[in-house]
């Protein structure tokens, strides 16, 4: 993927993550039911969170590298 697409993908991913943990989407999972002993909304939030981690992991590997700073301080600065 080219740089523009990747950056757009990162933005879409961030916004989708934000929406996933905000009402009204979170309201979809308030069922008053349990699965493996855990309330559904707990499972949903942790799954969404894990999804963010996985997405961020994939994006971190894919995102383009920035050119070094033109006047970066010498060494490892």
């Amino acid at each position: 993927m080219d740089r523009g697409k990747l950056v757009s993908a990162a933005l879409v991913f961030s916004i989708a993550s934000l929406m996933a943990i905000m009402p009204p989407l979170t309201g979809l999972f308030q069922w008053h039911a349990r699965f493996f002993g855990l309330p559904i909304e707990v499972i949903y939030l942790f799954c969404a969170w894990a999804g963010m981690v996985v997405g961020a992991f994939l994006l971190a590997r894919a995102m383009p590298r920035d050119p070094p700073s033109p006047d970066a301080p010498g060494g490892t600065g």
């Binding site: 950056v7 990162a10 933005l11 991913f13 961030s14 993550s17 934000l18 943990i21 939030l45 969170w49 963010m52 981690v53 997405g55 961020a56 994006l59 971190a60 995102m63």
Partner: peptide, 11 residues
């Protein structure tokens, strides 16, 4: 979750 958003949107 707030900090998670900041970090996954690190770019």
């Amino acid at each position: 979750l707030g900090p998670t958003l900041v970090f996954i949107g690190w770019w």
